[in-house]
Design a protein around this nucleic acid. Sequence first.
DNA 1: CCGTTAACCTGAGAGC
DNA 2: TGCTCTCAGGTTAACG
Length: 286
Amino acid sequence: MPELPEVEIVKQSLNKIVKFKTISKVIVNNRNLRFKIPKNFEKSLKKKKITKIFRKSKYVIFQINFEQYLIMHLGMSGTIHMSDKGNKKNTNISFYHGRDLPEKHNHLIFFFDKFKVIYNDPRRFGFVKIMKSKDELIKYFSKLGPEPLGNKFNTNYLKQKFNKSIKNIKNSLLDQNLVSGIGNIYASEILFRSKINPLKKVENLTLSEIRKIISKTKFVLSHAINKGGSSIRDFKNVSGFKGNYQKEFMAYSRENYLCLNRGCESKIIKININNRATYYCKNCQK
DNA sequence: CCGTTAACCTGAGAGC
DNA sequence: TGCTCTCAGGTTAACG
């Protein structure tokens, strides 16, 4: 559900709240997330300090006592909330479905001195995991493709990767081992702005089309971060502001609406690619 | 090896 | 109101 920009906003929110703070206690209400949470999870975090917070792909990573790492993936429906001690009202610092906090899906609660941070995830596709060392962390992410906003995601890299692949470009952008962080919304947005048909086979892409994909990927994702992410339903950051990038959608969720390209009178169509909704303009995207 | 499909879950919203 | 059906921002084991 959250893609790179939303996870980046969650990370920024968490960074303001828990950096250099000590976890006093952890409560696990449901161990059955995507991967079962081991019994020693609570103990290994108790009275430890969060020394750094960063993001890789769609993961939020907490450095613990300068040596261990807690990795967190929000899956499709994972959200982070916080509340002050004694205050029953929780603040959504990421996003969630519906108006009220669905408390029965508060699977993890991290207690700090003056507040608590809650991990809520109705569908339980998300997970947490502890990496005991930096080596273990690096090994865990070794198959992941480059960050789309980094220098390694460039024309030469894609050209070489696309050379011997028969896959279509939409599926390729969602392949986390090719490039890590793009999800279903931004894949449609990137291809619309690149004017490329999502079904086009990557081996048939020209050099200038590959250049376009690179530049539009960076443009769309960085713009989305600047707008605070996309708020489908009720995404909010730590300051209580909603993300605004959904207002910039040109393709995603716009089925039957007029294409926004100047002079184009076609309507956006919705098709299924690998069981994922894909939106595009047949007239503009070749 | 590669690419595709089904499966993992719950809840919201549409249609009847 | 309530039932059934479809859909949802992700990943990956199993299959051909």
